[in-house]
Simulated assay, not measured.
Amino acid sequence: MDTVIQVSPDKIKVLAHNQYDSSDHISPSTVPANPLDLFRQWFASVQGAVHEPEAMALSTVSLSGVPSTRIVHLKQVDSHGFVFYTNYNSRKSREMDANPYASLALYWREVHRQVRVIGRVEKVTKEESEAYFRDRPLGSKIGAWASNQSTVIAESELDQQIKIIEERFGVKEGGDQEVDIPLPNHWGGWRVIPNELEFWVGKPSRLHARVRYLRREDSPTEAPEWTIERLSP
C-alpha cells in the first residue's frame, strides 16, 4: 500500500504508509561482536543503493533539558566512533560543550535499514580537522569563515561577509582558485563515542528486527566489550 495523506485547512493526517519488507534478518547470534564492524558492513553495502547514506540526524540537549535535532553529514567512522564537522560556535556545539552527550540516527529508506547511536562526545584533534579542511571545496572553506552559524543575521550580511573573506584571502572571481585558506579556530570536528548502538531492519506489520549493543562499563576504553540483545519491535 502506498502512503496515503489527507490534507485539510487545519490538519495533516497520514492514513496509511508503505510496508517495510526487507529480506534481511539480524539477531544477536548472527551479528559480529563489535558494532562498528557491523556498521562498516552495512555502510559499504548501501553505497550506490541509497541516496546520501552519510546523512544523519544529530540530537543534542541543553543543560536545561531542551533537545534539538538537525541533519549533519558523517565524515569518518574509526575505532573510537563517528565523526562530523561543524562550527564550534553553533547551537549544537554549544550544547555539546555544556552537555557532552549526543545521539545519531541514520535512516536508509531504500533498503529498510536504520542505525541509532548514543554516546558521549569529544572534539577531534586540530590535526584531524586541518587534514579534513584542506580537502574541502573552496566555497565551503570560505563559508566556514564567513558564517557565524546559528546567529541571527541581516538580509545581506552573509553576502557581505563572504566578500570580506574573499578579499582577505585573495580569492578572485573567475581567477586562480588554488588559494590557501587556513582552518578557522572556530571550526572543526566532533566525535560521538558510542555507549549504545541499535541496528534496525524493517519488516511487514511493523514487526521489525532490532539488535542493540550496550558497552560494558567494566571493559577498557580502547577495546570495549559489548552486550548484544534483541529488542521487541
Rank of each mutant, 00 (worst) to 15 (best):
Y101R: 13
T221K: 07
P204G: 09
S59R: 04
V31M: 08
L158H: 13
N34D: 15
E225Q: 15
V115E: 01
P224Q: 00
V77I: 14
V50M: 10
A98L: 06
Q160N: 13
N148E: 15
D180G: 02
S129G: 05
P194L: 10
Y107F: 15
W145K: 01
H17Q: 14
S103R: 00
A209R: 08
I165Q: 07
R120H: 14
E52T: 13
F84V: 06
P35M: 02
I193L: 13
V152C: 10
T227R: 14
A55C: 09
E157V: 11
R109M: 08
F199K: 02
N89V: 04
W200D: 05
R216F: 00
V121A: 00
D176N: 15
S62N: 06
R120Y: 10
V179D: 05
R216L: 15
R206Q: 10
S129E: 00
K126A: 09
S22A: 15
A223H: 13
R191M: 08
Y107I: 03
E110F: 04
L74I: 07
K92I: 14
E222K: 12
S27G: 09
F199C: 01
Q177C: 02
E222T: 13
S59G: 12
Y107K: 01
S205D: 13
K11L: 14
H208S: 12
V77C: 03
G65R: 14
H112A: 12
R168Y: 06
D78I: 06
N34P: 07
G174W: 07
V171N: 05
G143W: 11
V117G: 01
